[in-house]
């Protein structure tokens, strides 16, 4: 494939800036403005074929392509990490097609495209989160017909969702949904927050950043403007709770971040590490040391800032 060339060079670019043609961008931009005006409502849009398979973030990529400009700095994360396949390839896609300036630092980014996490560092006003969404319809597992779920949203008929959560509590003693935990946006629409862990749900509440959601295969765009109420569904006697861990991050010692469990040998050994790789690196650079940092450093799995 030919790469995009800088505008201003004599040669014609191989395709339009940020890959999408201008008519497609206008269509997505109109959908985004309506999505922002009706927080939590899923706006249908004409999702395009992208040069990667559906399910790899085509919705998020189309949203990012419609909003990105030369002034932006783009951060892409996949399950919190900047260095995993999906994040690296999407970042490279925008470097090639939009000459995007990229970063791994959460506070430097103006656009953060994410798969399944919200960064640990607090978001700021002016930042835009772009979520990749596999299934935008929170009611889909309860009601397979689009014609029905659309009516349920239209009439605010969310009893079925409450019954599902109640049955969970009746059977297991607590709500067992741990990711893609349904939220009520602006007191009106029940929304799928994309498969972020429920640990991240409270970060959406009254966030100063603009949050945009793109589902490419399902052809839906939705949004949560800054300073908007996003409440996780719960019951008075069973209030919403986030996950907690018994031990801190093995590398940086953080006790307040979302941790991934990593199996480290075939003897049942395991460790817990921050899922947000930039957060963990930043803390290590600041001198925070977890219990297993020395071991990991000796194996050259991570750099130990204190030694280097």
């Amino acid at each position: 494939m030919n790469t995009h060339l800088n505008v201003g060079e004599d040669t014609k670019p191989a395709y339009n800036y940020a890959y999408l043609d201008e008519q497609t961008k206008r269509m997505i931009r109109r959908a985004l403005l309506k999505a922002v005006a009706i927080p939590g409502y899923q706006v249908p849009f004409g999702s395009r074929e992208m040069p990667l398979a559906r399910g790899w973030g085509t919705g998020g990529i189309q949203v990012t392509a419609a909003i990105i400009g030369p002034e932006d700095r783009l951060k892409v994360i996949d399950q919190g990490a900047d260095d995993t396949t999906n994040a690296v390839s999407i970042r490279r896609f925008f470097e090639r097609t939009a000459d995007a300036r990229t970063t791994e630092a959460t506070d430097e980014a103006t656009i953060i495209q994410t798969r399944h996490r919200i960064p640990e560092a607090p978001l700021k006003a002016g930042q835009i989160m772009v979520y990749q969404v596999p299934q935008p319809e929170p009611l889909r597992k309860l009601e397979p017909h689009e014609a029905e779920t659309r009516k349920m949203h239209a009439w605010g008929e969310y009893g079925l969702m409450q019954v599902k959560l109640y049955e969970n509590i009746a059977r297991f003693g607590e709500v067992t949904t741990t990711y893609d935990y349904p939220v009520m946006v602006n007191g009106r629409y029940v929304m799928a927050p994309s498969p972020i862990p429920k640990f991240d749900n409270p970060k959406m509440q009254m966030s100063p950043a603009l949050q945009l959601f793109g589902a490419g295969r399902e052809k839906r765009i939705y949004a949560v403007p800054p300073h908007t109420s996003v409440r996780s569904l719960d019951f008075e006697d069973h209030p919403f709770r986030i996950q907690s861990w018994e031990q801190p991050c093995g590398l940086c010692g953080a006790a307040d971040s979302y941790l991934d469990e990593v199996v480290i040998d075939d003897q049942g050994g395991r460790m817990f590490v921050c899922s947000d790789s930039h957060h963990c690196e930043t803390r290590r650079a600041e001198g925070h040391r977890g219990a297993m940092l020395a071991d990991a450093s000796a194996l050259h799995l991570v750099e130990d800032e204190a030694k280097s």
Binding site: V7, N16, Y17, E22, K25, R26, R29, L32, L33, V36, A37, A66, I67, I68, G69, P70, L210, A223, P225, P226
Partner: peptide, 19 residues
């Protein structure tokens, strides 16, 4: 410059309607 001017204008519109 349709590509970049429309992008700049859209971001202003997005900011206006989201805030």
């Amino acid at each position: 410059d349709p590509v970049f001017q429309s992008q700049t204008a859209f971001r202003a519109l997005l900011a206006a309607l989201s805030e």
